[in-house]
Simulated assay, not measured.
Amino acid sequence: MSEKKLVEVGKVHIPEDSDFRRFKSMCEDSDGWKLEVSKNQTMVWTKANDLSNFKMVKVRTVFEDLDAATVYDVLHDPVFRKVWDRTMLEGKEICAINPNNDIGYYAIRAPGPLKNRDFVTQRSWLDCGFEKIIFNHSVNHAARPMKKGTIRGISFLTGYYIVKLDMNKTQLTYVSQSDPKGNLPAWAVNKLTHIFAPKVINRIYKAAKTYKAWKAKNRPEFKPWLFPEQMMSELPRFNPDDIVSNEMLAASSDSLEEEEEGACKESDLKDEDY
């Protein structure tokens, strides 16, 4: 990233057009990125950063037979995510900030013997027709304190850049600058890059192929990411007093510090676990 952070962990920030342009630039630039995987139409890059020992990951692919609007819907729809995202334990919107920003909770099932992770993030989005952007960063909301048995991960900046190349041809770029915390060994991080990242893209593709048929039977008119009045009428409104500072979160969760138990060996995890 540039010398100035786009967003700051723990703080609610309403992005301006310039912020979305900066995220787009991150998705498009190649400076400092190392190509790790190139298979079919999917490429994976990594990049060191000064916020975490966990490298930034960027994945880009082209869907030859999917329209950009469907991909955008799939990445937004929290109910449908329960259908296709097999790693998700729980996903819930906590509150609406404004028509293009909300705060939500996401818990991930980690392959044993690793502990599960969860995230509380502010999500921001912008639909410009031929290109669409969704990104998030971690905040601390009083409705979702840390809990025993789960490690609270950090998203410094994670998101998607969706570009319409043709009527049914879409380019999707995913960028993640995050820290899953805990004691992840180097080999696990390497597998996350080489195996899990491309798998997620493939799952998104398969999900998108079934989305229209699924949505036709599941509140087809309800798309709050496109019709903000739906979101503003169904979700509680954002209250700034509910945002807990990083310092307060750390102080209140000292007794909940979680570590992976014992040494996790590469033989403990199979490729299908990712």
Rank of each mutant, 00 (worst) to 15 (best):
V7S: 04
E247M: 03
V163H: 04
A216W: 00
P198K: 12
M26F: 08
F20R: 04
G153S: 12
V175C: 06
K11A: 01
R123D: 08
E260L: 00
L51W: 09
L157H: 01
G104L: 08
S18E: 15
E259G: 02
Y160D: 13
P111N: 06
K212S: 12
W125C: 05
L165V: 03
K181S: 07
Y106F: 14
R117N: 12
T42M: 02
G32S: 01
A207G: 05
P224H: 01
S253A: 09
E221L: 00
W225G: 07
S52I: 13
S255C: 14
Y174F: 04
D127C: 04
D67R: 10
E247A: 07
R117W: 12
T150L: 11
E234G: 06
C128A: 08
A69V: 13
R60H: 14
T158I: 03
I162S: 03
P145L: 03
S253R: 05
P228K: 02
I97L: 09
T121H: 01
E16D: 03
G182M: 04
L35E: 09
V139N: 07
L89R: 10
W187G: 10
D242Q: 14
D179E: 14
M88R: 15
H194Q: 13
N190C: 05
V79C: 13
N101E: 15
K217H: 09
N168H: 05
K223W: 01
D65Y: 04
L157F: 00
K169Y: 02
V12P: 14
R203M: 10
K47R: 10
R203A: 09
Y174K: 04
K169C: 08
H141I: 13
H76S: 11
K132G: 06
L165A: 00
M232N: 04
T158D: 07
I154Y: 03
K92Q: 12
S30W: 06
S267H: 06
